[in-house]
């Protein structure tokens, strides 16, 4: 500090010159329009150059942020693409008719998950509660029964497959109309077993098997398969019939959910029997 003061005192002539010149230039640029504007312009050009240089450098360091922002925007734009949306269209139409009461309604849905090689197989459908799917609705494929809806969320439904030992389907022989229960033994997804057919009737290889329509879940007369082998169980008086399924569970893409409009009526009426007992 002392040295600085000494330096200034020693060069007081120059410093006074400097200060007065600064004051003079201040007046010059402050009160002369021409000088002011020229000074501002010239200084502006120089400052612009410097600013551009520094902002270029700054931009380089902000590239990372900019990239992240762009990526976010990309994600946002991708989200608005059509392929990001699941189609919520419902492809059925109700027709009211006083001659025919519409009992069965079919709704086309897509299978988005499927399994055939597990013990308990399930399917997932791409429509759910919002589209009118409820639990215990039947699911049929192009030629046969696929399963029954087990759980529904807003947009999806899980179906217990016919290839699941817990699933039993009421089925009958097309010719004789004798009915029994169809179930899977957990071994070969192409074959199911039809039990409870009494062994006094005649069953041939190649006989057709169809749904009985007793369950209020599936309509009657949906073809299920044909008999491959009919074993007589000597202990129980019933056949043990091996059925080859028409439906190919491995290649399911589109199935139909079946709704029985009269189901409530049937179940209510049938439940009265239990009360009577």
């Amino acid at each position: 500090m002392n040295n600085l003061i000494r330096f200034i005192v020693r060069n007081h002539h120059f410093f006074i010159f400097l200060i007065t010149e600064v004051i003079a230039f201040f007046f010059l640029f402050q009160y002369n329009q021409y000088h002011k504007s020229t000074f501002v312009n010239k200084a502006g050009v120089a400052l612009n150059g410097i600013n551009r240089f520094t902002s270029d450098i700054e931009d380089f360091f902000y590239l990372r942020d900019a990239n992240e922002k762009l990526a976010e925007e990309n994600a946002h734009i991708l989200n608005t693409l059509k392929r990001s949306y699941k189609e919520n269209k419902i492809s059925y139409k109700e027709i009211y008719d006083s001659v025919y009461i519409k009992q069965w309604n079919y709704m086309a849905v897509n299978v988005i998950n499927n399994s055939v090689n597990l013990q308990n197989n399930y399917l997932t459908l791409d429509k759910g509660q919002l589209h009118g799917i409820k639990e215990n609705m039947g699911v049929v494929g192009p030629n046969g029964v696929v399963g029954v809806v087990k759980h529904v969320s807003n947009n999806y439904a899980v179906v217990i497959s016919i290839l699941n030992p817990n699933f039993k389907l009421s089925a009958r022989l097309s010719d004789t109309k004798y009915f029994g229960s169809l179930h899977w033994d957990g071994i070969d997804p192409r074959y199911c077993w039809l039990d409870d057919i009494p062994n006094h009737i005649k069953v041939d290889v190649g006989d057709k098997v169809e749904t009985s329509g007793y369950s209020a879940i599936f309509p009657a007369q949906i073809p299920l398969g044909e008999v491959v082998e009919a074993k007589k169980d000597l202990n129980s008086n019933f056949y043990h019939i091996k059925v080859r399924l028409f439906i190919e569970m491995q290649s399911l893409t589109q199935v139909y959910v079946v709704e029985n409009y009269l189901r409530d009526e049937i179940t209510k009426l049938e439940s009265k029997l239990n009360i009577d007992d």
Partner: peptide
């Protein structure tokens, strides 16, 4: 500065005369 005040050019002559005095 005095000349500038009359000539209405503040600072212009002052810059020159200050330099000259220095």
């Amino acid at each position: 500065m005095t000349i500038d005040l009359f000539a209405n050019t503040p600072g212009m002559h002052a810059v020159a005369t200050t330099f000259m005095g220095y």
